[in-house]
Nucleic acid binder design. Structure first.
Length: 764
DNA sequence: GAGTTTGAAACT
DNA sequence: CAGTTTCAAACTC
């Protein structure tokens, strides 16, 4: 099972450090142990390095990260001691890691496999979580991660508190390790602290210090990281991916199996719950990584095994999803009673048992989502997922026990939809999350009323934010008619579709169909609204008014709606009509195709008129109360709406009525969308319809890029920029984008992103 | 909630 | 590529 190295690593670090052998090793190892500092660097570099990968393909990155995460978690179980001597452990770990550097990746992998056997369960889920978290936290957006996370953590922690000692070694380890960067670590830490002190504080501090967050607990981890990172950096995404896939595959399978066993073994449901909770927290936080699969834990194992063409990629996601759901459920349950949690846990553990349903769908969903949507689709998925996650999370919370069980499948799907990165996203998401959490808390506390209330919140926030729901009857949700499919996400329970094939179970079908459509139109799944870099005027700049700043990729063809209703994609996307539009009688409030931008008094007059019309039509419905002006503000970041990591800033809610499905665009608004609108001051921000999230993705202007990177989000921000969305934005073939002169800049952006653009092939 | 309108997507 | 059909969202009642 354990390789010699492994064993060493496993041994308590504290002892290790002191041991002469350890010292000797240190002296021998070419790499000098640098403690915390070095580690932090590693992490940073890691994150940065990962960024590109992320851009390339979300999957890959996630996988890598996942792997990473797993690693440290693994170490945990074997080392209860760590908790006591965190610092010592770290140092020891670091040392070990240094030593580990020497080890080849292959070795690492081998170990990994062996370790995996020994290691239990959490890896996948945790990894996924970590990844997502990492992204989120990295983002640095305090907002997103901090608050929600804290709350969530606290909840989870509280839940865990009782069980954590036995059940969640990994979590403890993580906490001990001090893996701030990763969601897992954070969770673990928070949890741990909570148990003892109060998780929230550390969490915050950690977040603030995000840079140094990543610390590997176990030597193995370090190795793992090294291996992972090295390869990616050196070889490139592909290599990573392949490696990842391999690893994940093997490991995942093992881990899954183990997980199931462990869960069963562990009588403490809580322990699982704790982990799940973590995941949930992450998701809720907005980390979510993508895939948050609802039931990640239990189902995954079986699912992965079954599905598995690419277990790796989805693994993390799946688990997340699973975890998330579970966690959510657990949370509720916990709130209600410990027993409930246990039930959840049992479910998750057993996956197989009652959850089989969930598992299957989830698993597929997760994987499929990733696989299927590796390219553009993924971005959408991510976005959708994110939003969905939130919504889902809220759902879960709301749903609570019974509902949860019933919904579990749905939840799963939803989670699957959601992508972790999105969290990063922004205000909206955050909001949703926050709401979700709140809801959860309320829930936990109790009354059905609260639940309802929460649900409403969730619906409002979650749906509006991101969840898509379709109502397809004949397309089987395998055509672009289907919003879910078009968005690159699986259909979820809330969908009212009939004969839906857009589910994880039909992953192959979905992928093949997707490829088919993409072969026909490479940009089919790309955002429909493109924002040209030049257009990115500063906020307040009048140029922003010019509709040209953001345009619909292909333009609309409206004849009767006057481009004043959501029938019009341009209007729906919150952009003005452009030359590309073939609309008749265009009155698009965001900009008419002819002059597009209304200028001067005339423009004002027209705007007023339009505004009135708009208000009559849309505004009334949507409840002007949610004015979105703020949302409109464009931040360069907004340009990256799609980027998952992006910190959620201001969640802006578009005026759309709550009834109306929340356009996925909500995400956009979250992240980047704001930039859109903001740049274009249509003077009627209130009107702005929520653009469909996906549609909004734009190329990020070069200028903006720096900000992104710098942005609150430090490394993460960068990642965000790499977000799937951006990828989507950059289609392999930019021909479409090049249409208007104004788009040059966008084109540049696209080109940039292109490299990262994930290949359609999921396995890539 | 059912029915209508609308325009994108798909098909020919 | 244009015209037609299909489809599901958006909208209305």
């Amino acid at each position: 099972m354990d390789t010699p190295n492994r064993n060493q690593i496993t041994t308590p670090l504290s002892q290790f450090e002191d041991s002469p052998v350890f010292n000797y090793i240190n002296s021998l190892s070419p790499i000098k142990t640098v403690k915390s500092t070095r580690i932090s660097h590693t992490l940073n570099s890691f994150s940065f390095a990962t960024l590109p990968s992320i851009f390339t393909s979300p999957h890959v990155s996630s996988l890598k990260e996942t792997r990473f995460l797993r690693r440290h978690q693994f170490s945990d179980p074997s080392k209860p001691e760590f908790s006591s001597d965190n610092e010592n452990k770290r140092s020891a770990i670091e040392r070990v890691m240094d030593v580990a550097h020497n080890i080849d990746e292959q070795q690492y992998f081998e170990r990994r496999s062996s370790i995996d056997e020994a290691e239990p369960i959490y890896e996948c889920s945790e990894l996924a979580v970590e990844v997502s978290r990492t992204l989120i936290y990295d983002c640095g957006s305090p907002v997103c991660s901090a608050t929600p996370c804290n709350e969530i953590e606290s909840k989870y922690v509280s839940e865990f508190a009782g069980t954590s000692s036995s059940g969640l070694p990994s979590a403890q380890e993580a906490s001990e390790t001090g893996f701030l960067g990763n969601g897992v670590q954070l969770e673990g830490i928070s949890m741990t602290e909570n148990n003892t002190e109060g998780a929230g504080r550390d969490w915050e501090s950690m977040i603030s210090g995000a840079a140094g967050l990543l610390v590997f607990d176990s030597p193995d981890e370090g190795e793992a990281f090294k291996g992972l990172f090295r390869k990616p950096l050196d070889s490139g995404t592909r290599l990573r991916t392949s490696l990842m896939s391999e690893f994940t595959h093997d490991e995942s399978t093992q881990s899954l199996d183990q997980v199931g066993l462990e869960h069963r073994e562990s009588e403490n449901p809580c322990s699982q719950v704790g982990e799940e909770g973590r995941l949930n927290v992450m998701e809720a936080t907005g980390d979510i990584p993508a895939s948050s699969c609802p039931h990640s834990h239990v189902p995954e194992p079986s699912e992965q095994i079954d599905n598995e063409p690419n277990p790796n990629l989805h693994r993390g996601i799946r688990r997340r999803c699973l975890v998330f759901e579970i966690g959510g459920a657990c949370n509720k349950h916990l709130g209600d009673s410990s027993s409930s949690c246990s039930s959840f846990l049992s479910q998750s553990d057993v996956n197989i048992e009652s959850n089989v349903k969930q598992l299957v769908p989830i698993k597929t969903g997760t994987e499929s989502s990733r696989r299927i949507l590796p390219g553009i689709g993924l971005h959408l998925n991510a976005l959708a997922r994110t939003s969905k996650n939130y919504s889902i999370s809220s759902h879960e919370v709301l749903t609570t026990d019974q509902e949860y069980l019933d919904k579990s499948p749905a939840v799963t799907s939803m989670e699957m939809r959601i992508i972790p990165y999105e969290n990063g996203g922004q205000g909206i998401e955050d909001t949703s999350q926050a709401s979700g959490y709140i809801a959860n808390e309320e829930f936990n506390q109790n009354s059905p009323k609260k639940k309802r209330h929460v649900q409403r919140k969730l619906e409002t926030a979650g749906e509006s934010e991101g969840c898509k729901r379709c109502n397809c009857k004949k397309s089987k949700c395998l055509k672009l008619y289907c919003e879910c499919f078009a968005a690159g996400v699986y259909c979820v329970e809330p969908c009212s579709c009939i004969d839906c094939f857009n589910k994880p179970v039909h992953e192959d079908t979905v992928l093949s169909t997707r490829k088919q459509i993409e072969s026909r139109n490479p940009l089919a799944f790309a955002p429909k609204v493109i924002r040209s870099s030049d257009s990115v005027p500063e906020v307040g700049d009048e140029s922003s008014k010019t509709p040209a700043s953001a345009r619909h990729k292909r333009g609309c063809n409206c004849k009767k709606s006057g481009c004043l209703k959501k029938y019009c994609e341009c209007f729906q996307g919150g952009v003005g009509c452009s030359v590309n539009c073939r609309c008749e009688g265009c009155k698009n409030a965001f900009g008419r195709k002819d002059g597009s931008a209304l200028i001067g008094a005339e423009a004002e007059l027209e705007e007023e008129e339009e505004t009135e019309i708009y208000e009559k039509t849309v505004v009334n419905k949507s409840l002007q109360k949610n004015v979105i002006q703020n949302s409109v503000e464009q931040n360069p970041d907004s340009a990256l709406p799609a980027t998952p990591l992006r910190c959620v800033r201001e969640s802006v809610r578009l005026p759309f009525s709550s009834k109306t499905k929340p356009p996925r665009s909500s995400f956009l608004s979250i992240g980047s969308s704001s930039s859109f609108y903001g740049s274009q001051k249509f003077g009627k921000p209130n009107f702005l319809p929520q653009p469909k999230f996906e549609k909004r993705i734009q190329a990020v202007p070069e200028d903006e890029m720096p900000e992104l990177l710098q942005g609150n989000c430090s490394p993460i921000s960068g990642i965000k920029s790499a977000s799937p969305n951006s990828k989507r934005v950059s289609p392999p073939h930019c021909s479409d984008f090049g249409v208007s002169p104004g788009r040059r800049s966008s084109r540049k952006l696209i080109l940039r992103s292109i490299p990262s653009f994930p290949s359609l092939n999921p396995k890539d």
